[in-house]
Amino acid sequence: MAMAVEARSLTKRFGEFTAVDGIDLTVERGESFAMLGPNGAGKSSTMRMISTVSPATSGQLSVLGLDPATDGQAIRSRMGVVAQDDNLDDALTVRENIMIYGRYFGLSWAAARSKADELLQFAQLEDRSGAQVNSLSGGMKRRLAIARALVNDPDLVLLDEPTTGLDPQARHLLWERLYQLKERGVTLVLTTHYMDEAEQLSDRLVVMDQARIVAEGSPSSLIAEHVSKEVLEIRYPAEANVDLADLGLRTEELADRTLIYTDRGEDTLAVLVNSGRTPSSSLVRRASLEDVFLALTGRRLVE
């Protein structure tokens, strides 16, 4: 069977500006794939090309084995799209949002009704079925947007920043629902600013920065490849001028703290303490994709 998504030298320009600069990516069927990157990296522009709405400026793209330029209708009928904005219809109720959407995909009214019930349950919105969209919280709107995107039992679901702006509880509920989809064999392509989201939900990811892909792999392989196992975060008083060069480890100076990449954080901390360089505060943690991003670009993911 054809790949879910296959892109070669995919490029998107807006006038002179290049939003996506010749990226290559492949998403297999059943895979859960994430694009991690800061604001303006080109994630949404890539998603919009995959969703067949935005034509590529150059390069090749195939979605579910079809060409978005010519088979948009066929691709869309087998795909679910959750855009960065919810774009719900505020003139309709929660349930109508799903049903009316389902009609565009050829569901009979009876099928649209039973599908809406099933999806409202999935999104834990049964008790809001008759409510106006504007009365929903941000997390509920997001879940409704996702439920609506599933109305055609899609083979491929695109999620552009599914949890941005949600509180931790709402995020975890969404993650759990997305995990269920993945278990059912639905191919997921999502974008995110959050490394924990990418680590939780994706089998494989690309790190995007300034219109390009700067790294690719599974969350754990990217960490293994680009950073140490652990990170020692230390703080010194502002006036202190501490030299760490003798440690022989990679360090990163941030505005408010210093990161030391090490395989054994506690040992490194002991070395500092024993040599009279006890920091005013310290923390040992596992390395994350945030560190990968910092190592690759010299910048932080979420400013």
Partner: peptide
Amino acid sequence: WRGVYVSITSTPLAI
């Protein structure tokens, strides 16, 4: 402002 037509672009209906 409402994005109703934006969401329709993800259905089989062409622009």
